[in-house]
Each structure stands twice: as C-alpha cells, then as structure tokens.
C-alpha cells in the first residue's frame, strides 16, 4: 500500500482534484470563471464605457428620447384618466463584456449581475428591439441567451394580421418564424413582435421585419425575419425586469 502510494499517490490526488474542480465549476455554472473574467476586463471596460456613453447620447437618440418622454407623459395622463395603476419599472443598462464560447451557442456575457439587481428571466433589449433573456447570474456578470440561438424559441405575432407563431434562432442576424396556422397572411416588410402567448417574454416587444416568406414549407408556412438589432455590433444593452410565466430551468 505504501509503495503504491509512493508511485501513484500524487497522480491519483491530482486526478481527483482536477475532476472535482471541474465538477464544481459545472455545478456552479462557472461562476468563478465569469467573475474572474469580469475583474480582468473591467479596467478596459470602464474606458470603453465612457466612449460608448458619449456615443449613445448623440443627437438622434436625444431627439427620440425627448419624443418618448413626451409620449410617456401623455400616456401617463391618459392612464391617470383611466385610473390605471402603472407599476414603476426600473431598467438596467449593461455593457457586453463577452461573446459566446464556441460555435454552437449564441450567448453574451454582460457586465452587470446580481449586485445590480439583475435576475434570471429578465428581458434584454438593444436599441431597436428585444435580443434575449438572462439565463444565469453571478454577482457581477450575467449570461444572456440570444434569440438568434437555435435553442431559443420565442412566441411571436405578425402585428398587422395577428397571426401567431414562434421564432427560432439560426445563429445569424436572421431568424425563422414558423406559423401555427396553415394559411398565414404574411407579407415581406411586416413587423414581428413577441406575442401574448409567450411564457418567457412579455407581449408586444419589437423583434424584426419579415425578409422573405416560404409558403411551400410544410406543415405550415415559414418566414425569414431580419432582427431589428444588429447583434454582432452590439456593445450595450438594456435589461428590463420580467417574471417568466413558467419556471425557468
């Protein structure tokens, strides 16, 4: 026994240690790695953050923001008139600090986490529309499953005709929308939003525009949707609180 230990003890201990650490990382969904990564990149991030914030407050956005303010004010007055109790919504602005690992996933890592109030299931959007939802949170980072991921399915609706369907990611800027009904009145250029049937997303968020329609596809027609938000160029996102209607794994 003693001789065996002399010969293989060191190796065995290391093997067990390596497997244990790997298992631990798996169980914690690599929280340690994500956190270390955050602290390593955050000094570089802060510089970019300032530049980006400058970029974000350009004239066009200011104009749109003012219009939005105006509309929100009006909306508020109408809601008051109707006796509608609006809940105060907070939104968290977060930088993208990491892209997806490997070719099979379309995920991004954000530089805001539990400490900033981010929780699993929250909705992430860029300028132009929804881009995904939070699937994992660590104290300083959070991971987003993009709607362009093939594993992501979002209930969607054609705004003009209210035809329901769901969109599935294709690992690119374009996603596929599959309809539930046989004959769907869809045209190129129609806008697509999340539907009220969606469990994981709130209804009415803009997603994209119809690029092409494939009527021959069985059992139901398919449409190619061009996402509003340029996912590859995105550097900054907004997180909105949302409680999914189903338990998220």
């Amino acid at each position: 026994m003693h001789r065996w230990w002399d010969k293989y003890g060191w190796q065995t201990t290391l093997t067990i240690l390596a497997l244990f650490v790997a298992w631990l990382l798996k169980q914690t969904q690599a929280t340690a790695i994500a956190e270390t990564y955050y602290f390593l990149v955050s000094p570089f991030q802060s510089q970019r953050q300032l530049q980006l914030e400058n970029k974000l407050t350009n004239a066009r956005i200011l104009q749109l923001e003012q219009r939005l303010n105006e509309l929100e004010q009006q909306n508020k007055q109408f809601q008051e008139l109707l006796g509608y109790a609006a809940q105060q919504e907070l939104s968290i602005t977060a930088p993208i600090i990491g892209r997806s690992a490997g070719i099979w996933w379309n995920q991004i890592t954000l530089g805001k986490g539990r400490n900033d109030g981010v929780e699993k299931g929250f909705i992430v959007s860029g300028i132009g529309g929804v881009i995904g939802r939070i699937i994992q949170v660590t104290p300083h980072t959070s991971r987003v499953l993009l709607i362009s991921d093939p594993n992501s399915r979002v209930g969607a609706v054609v705004t003009r005709t209210r035809h329901p369907g769901f969109i599935q990611g294709q690992n690119s800027q374009a996603v596929v929308m599959r309809f539930f009904t046989q004959v769907a009145d869809v045209r190129v250029g129609d806008t697509i939003t999340t539907s009220s049937l969606s469990y994981l997303y709130p209804a009415g968020l803009p997603i994209g525009k119809v690029k092409s329609v494939n009527v021959d596809k069985g059992p139901a027609p398919e449409a190619e949707i061009e996402l509003n938000v340029p996912l590859a160029l995105l550097e900054w996102v907004v997180i909105k609180p949302f409680t999914p209607k189903v338990e998220v794994k």
Binding site: T15, A18, L19, V21, A22, W23, L25, K26, Q27, T28, Q29, A30, I33, S100, A101, G102, W104, W105, Q107, N151
Partner: peptide
C-alpha cells in the same frame, strides 16, 4: 481522457449542458 472530462465539464458550465 481525464483532461478531456474535466475540460468538457468546464465547457458545459460556460455554455449549455
């Protein structure tokens, strides 16, 4: 094989299991 197992587990943790 052991290195493959450990790093495979880590990769799973970083993406989807």
């Amino acid at each position: 094989a052991i290195a493959g197992t450990s790093l495979g587990l880590i990769y799973d943790a970083l993406t989807n299991p």
